[in-house]
Amino acid sequence: MAANVAKKTAKKTPGQLANFTKGFIKENPVFVFLLGLCPALAVTSTLETSLGMGLLVVFVLVLSNIVVSLIKNFIPKEVKIPSYIVIISTFVTMVGLLTEAYAENLFESLGIFIPLIVVNCLILGRAESFASKNNVVSSAIDGLGMALGFTFALMLIGVSREFLSTGAIAYGEYLPLGVSGSIFNFDTHLFNMAVFGGPAGGFIVIGVILAILQAIDLNKKKKAEIARQKMIEEKKRLALERKRKKELESAGGQA
């Protein structure tokens, strides 16, 4: 539903669309700002746990952004940060209880990383730098976009790690989907590098992804640089031509 709202509003004002999508690539909290690396490493050994963590963050971030922007005018400046922490930890506690009740497998596998959403810099960061300065709708959209960007990053890491470590992508194991099984099940030892399911694999996978992003970024910059160089040369050439033309004209005049 929240996504629909976002789309509708996005149609009306193109600014909101950018506000929504910026979290995915341009300002991706994990890949660009290195926020929330703890959960990005710890709960991403499978796709499902990554998605589960992402959904919890969506819930907490959207709600806390809404609440913070709603009450931003009532909170005294002196106790701004403490109030945000209280609001966030309230939602995290609620989310933890709900998860334990309705998705106990996810709760088991996320373990202490559910209470640790409280200290995820992303959430406090958005409350502090965006929600406390903008209206409710923008804050909600910003929260949703950022959290989905976070989820996207987690899922990207999760899918790589699960595939590398097991050769398959399982579903229904942790989330209460009602069905379970696996897709892309390569029944071969080739895709069975258990190390990627473990701690070391987390660091390495994120490192590789960041390197690829950095390479793309560098590539772009390089292309832009080449284009700029070409433009400058073109300008120089034009200037030279003009100069020659002038010289020719002046020479012709003399003649």
């Binding site: 701690p199 070391a200 987390g202 660091f203 390495i204 490192g207 590789v208 390197a211 950095q214 560098l218």
Partner: peptide, 22 residues
């Protein structure tokens, strides 16, 4: 390589350290 400089290579180093700690 330029694209590995900074955080990416640090993460790889951390991964190797994690392997050692295993």
């Amino acid at each position: 390589p330029e694209s590995w400089r900074g955080v990416p290579v640090s993460l790889i180093v951390a991964g190797i350290m994690a392997l050692a700690f295993l």
